[in-house]
Design a protein around this nucleic acid. Structure first.
Lengths: 122, 122
DNA sequence: TTGACACATTCCTATATAGGAATGTAATGT
DNA sequence: ACATTACATTCCTATATAGGAATGTGTCAA
């Protein structure tokens, strides 16, 4: 079987770096496609295709006005990702604690060897 | 160009649902591959391949003991994802506020029409 | 040594891109 | 009516899977 479609869910949609760039650019503000093209530095058809994926997964909203289309990030659709990653929060806090403890133990050892330097210098 | 490799970063690695399942299963505890196979309900080679991707992206750590290999989730590697999604937190709070405001406006309208029901019923 | 066990790796194939190029489409200006 | 603007869509191709099947590898037990 091949990989799941990029349009299958938000997890697959945000795997693409340019799409994350677009979502960041469109966070909190509306922009028309031409401005996104300039900001992202990709050709217009590619941007439109990325916007298509983001649209299908509900990660952006569109508003039409004449021949312009104004896109903006639908932050609500990013929330499930935030919540999934949040379930690991308590574990990386543990990791950091262990790192800190190891660092402190190392400092302890260093200061001990320093106290013995006058003996150990050859 | 094709899609970026699943091993290119954590974003691509977690796009696969079974890999997210594995990460959740391995959060906070060590498990050997056989137990993961049973828990996930996928055949052993497939699990090993998923673990390979998670290894390459640093999302899991391995400890060898005899012929067993104990895997556990490296929560620290999930942190960048959490932080990226967190940048949108303030926007979905705004969205929720708007939703709430619209709901309240709607309730207001409903109670108004209710007050007029006796006139509007045909 | 030999067999069993626990995993990893390789080979295979259908499928889904991402980007480039070309083309389609709807709205606006003249 | 017609050219132009602003996007979307289609066609094309190289590439990277995910899972199934088969096979390889290191470890332990008898």
């Amino acid at each position: 079987m091949a990989r799941a479609a990029t349009t299958s869910d938000a997890f697959n949609a945000i795997a693409e770096p340019r799409r994350r760039q677009i979502l960041t650019f469109l966070a909190g503000t509306e922009r028309q496609v031409g401005d996104i093209v300039i900001a992202i530095g990709l050709d217009q058809p590619s941007v439109s295709k990325h916007l298509g994926v983001l649209r299908e997964t509900g990660l952006v909203h569109v508003r039409r006005n004449g021949r312009h289309r104004f896109y903006r990030t639908n932050a609500e659709a990013i929330r499930p990702l935030h919540e999934w990653t949040a379930t690991f929060e308590r574990y990386w806090q543990h990791t950091l604690l262990r790192v800190k403890q190891r660092a402190e133990a190392q400092m302890q050892k260093n200061s001990e060897s320093q106290r013995n330097d006058h003996k150990e210098k050859p």
